[in-house]
Computed example of a mutant assay.
Amino acid sequence: MAALEGWQRAGGWHDAIRHFVPPPEKLYTWWSYRARDWEASDRGRRLDHIWVSQDLASHLRDWRIHRTARGWNQASDHVPVLVELDV
């Protein structure tokens, strides 16, 4: 995690999802197949990120992590992550 944060700072990137969801609020984009009921256990990781340049940070309009996609038939353990920019 420290290395990822270092890359983010070094590049001057803005975390588009954390723009809307402040820490320490849970933020997952991946849930293991090992959990019988991934939704009930609600233990995952944030493996998927969207970073924007600082000049785009003020144009962030909305965000979505499509958590329900994890429950689809033959679903991936990762879910789509989207941001909307007002440019």
Rank of each mutant, 00 (worst) to 15 (best):
A35W: 15
E39T: 05
R18E: 08
A75K: 11
P22K: 08
T29R: 03
L85F: 14
H19W: 00
V87N: 09
H78A: 08
W38S: 06
A3R: 13
A75H: 09
L60T: 10
A3M: 11
T29I: 08
D42N: 15
H14A: 10
P23F: 01
S41G: 03
P23Y: 02
L60N: 09
D55H: 15
A69I: 01
H19K: 00
R43P: 00
G11V: 04
H14G: 03
H49C: 03
L47W: 00
V81I: 07
F20K: 08
L56Q: 15
A16W: 01
G6K: 06
R46I: 04
L47V: 04
N73P: 09
V21T: 09
D42S: 14
D77G: 12
V79S: 07
A40Y: 03
V83F: 13
V52N: 11
R70Q: 05
T68L: 02
A40K: 15
L27K: 07
V52M: 11
D37E: 12
D48T: 05
M1Y: 01
S53E: 14
D86N: 13
W63T: 07
L27D: 07
D55Q: 14
T29A: 10
V52F: 13
D48W: 06
R64T: 10
Q74Y: 03
A57Q: 09
G6Y: 00
E25Q: 10
A75V: 12
R9L: 13
R45K: 12
A10Q: 15
P22L: 02
K26D: 09
R46W: 05
E84M: 09
W13C: 07
L4P: 03
L82H: 14
P23A: 10
W72Q: 11
H78T: 10
G6Q: 09
D62K: 10
V81E: 08
L85K: 13
D48C: 07
Q8N: 07
V52G: 11
V52P: 06
H59M: 07
K26I: 02
W7Y: 11
W30M: 06
V21P: 06
W7K: 04
W72T: 06
I65C: 06
H66T: 05
R67N: 08
A3F: 03
L27P: 04
R34T: 09
W31Y: 12
A75Y: 00
Q8M: 10
R43C: 00
E25C: 05
H14L: 03
W72G: 08
S58V: 11
A16I: 00
Y33P: 00
A10S: 14
Y33T: 08
S32T: 15
F20G: 07
N73D: 11
I17V: 13
W51K: 00
Y28V: 09
I50L: 14
M1N: 06
R43A: 02
R67L: 04
D62V: 02
Y33Q: 12
V87F: 14
G11A: 15
H14E: 12
W13I: 03
R43N: 03
A10Y: 01
D86F: 11
S32F: 12
W31K: 02
V52I: 09
Y28W: 12
W51H: 13
W72M: 07
I50A: 10
I17D: 05
F20P: 06
D37T: 04
W30K: 01
L4S: 08
L60A: 10
H19V: 02
S53L: 15
Q74I: 04
W38F: 12
L85E: 02
N73S: 08
R70S: 07
R9K: 15
Q54F: 02
I65A: 05
G11R: 09
P22H: 03
Q8F: 01
D55F: 13
